[in-house]
Computed example of a mutant assay.
Amino acid sequence: MSTMKPRPHIDHISRGFWEAAREGRLTVQRCDDCAHQHYPGAPICPNCLSDKQSWAPASGRGTLLSWVRFHRAYWDGFRDDLPYNVILVGLEEGPLMLSNLIGAEPESLKIGDPLQVSFEAVDETTTLPKFRPA
């Protein structure tokens, strides 16, 4: 019997991000008052505290900043994926994003290498942004 992996909690703040991901588009939250771009979404801008936020297109390009390999399944749904890699990506727009590396092993890359987003449909409501070497 397969145990499902946890799914993101989609609420009124994150909905725009997940809808864009389903369409194969990466977005970051942008403050409509000061233009600060941030991720993940928040009810107020971390720069100016405005509550006027929208989801803006992102290039999908980033830089590998760090990575870790998990050898333990903290959720049963990840047991069959062990070991799996989680990476820290510095998006071209500035925000940081945690994701997974696909198409390479992190040992074959070096910190600072360019990455490009790729999307993986998990089910009819969830599509995950993952990154591959650019």
Rank of each mutant, 00 (worst) to 15 (best):
Met1His: 11
Ser2Arg: 08
Ser2Met: 12
Ser2Glu: 14
Thr3Glu: 03
Met4Lys: 12
Met4Arg: 08
Met4Gly: 15
Met4Ser: 14
Met4Asn: 13
Lys5Ile: 11
Arg7Trp: 00
Pro8Trp: 04
Pro8Arg: 08
Asp11Asn: 14
Asp11Phe: 07
His12Trp: 09
His12Gln: 12
His12Tyr: 10
Ile13Trp: 06
Ile13Ser: 04
Arg15Gly: 05
Phe17Gln: 03
Trp18Leu: 06
Ala20Glu: 13
Ala21Ile: 03
Arg22Tyr: 05
Arg22Thr: 03
Glu23Lys: 11
Gly24Phe: 11
Arg25Asn: 12
Arg25Ala: 08
Gln29Thr: 05
Gln29Phe: 06
Gln29Arg: 02
Arg30Leu: 02
Cys31Lys: 04
Asp32Ala: 15
Asp32Cys: 14
Ala35Cys: 08
Ala35Trp: 02
Ala35Gln: 12
His36Trp: 12
Gln37Tyr: 01
Gln37Lys: 09
Gln37Ile: 01
Gln37Met: 14
Tyr39Ile: 08
Gly41Met: 02
Gly41Glu: 03
Gly41Cys: 06
Ala42Asn: 03
Pro43Thr: 08
Ile44Glu: 00
Ile44Asp: 02
Cys45Gln: 01
Pro46Met: 10
Ser50Pro: 05
Ser50Asp: 00
Ser50Glu: 04
Ser50His: 01
Asp51Ser: 13
Gln53Pro: 00
Ala58His: 01
Ser59Met: 11
Gly62Thr: 07
Leu65Pro: 00
Ser66Arg: 00
Trp67Arg: 04
Trp67Met: 06
Val68Glu: 11
Val68Ile: 07
Phe70Asn: 01
Phe70His: 14
Phe70Glu: 10
Phe70Tyr: 13
Phe70Met: 11
Phe70Val: 07
His71Thr: 10
Arg72Asp: 08
Arg72Lys: 15
Trp75Gln: 12
Trp75Lys: 04
Asp76Tyr: 01
Gly77Gln: 06
Gly77Thr: 02
Asp80Ile: 06
Asp81Met: 07
Asp81Arg: 00
Tyr84Ile: 12
Asn85Thr: 15
Val86Arg: 03
Val86Cys: 08
Ile87Pro: 04
Ile87His: 00
Gly90Asp: 12
Leu91Ile: 07
Leu91Lys: 02
Leu91Asn: 05
Glu93Phe: 05
Ser99Tyr: 03
Asn100Ile: 07
Asn100Tyr: 04
Asn100Pro: 05
Ile102Asp: 10
Glu107Ala: 14
Leu109Trp: 07
Leu109Cys: 09
Leu109Phe: 13
Asp113Ala: 12
Asp113Val: 03
Gln116Phe: 09
Gln116Gly: 13
Val117Trp: 01
Phe119Arg: 04
Glu120Ser: 11
Ala121His: 09
Val122Gln: 14
Asp123Trp: 05
Glu124Lys: 12
Glu124Val: 06
Thr125Gln: 13
Leu128Trp: 10
Leu128Phe: 12
Pro129Gly: 07
Lys130Ser: 08
Phe131Gly: 03
Phe131Pro: 04
Arg132Ser: 13
Arg132Thr: 15
Arg132Pro: 06
Ala134Asp: 14
Ala134Lys: 07
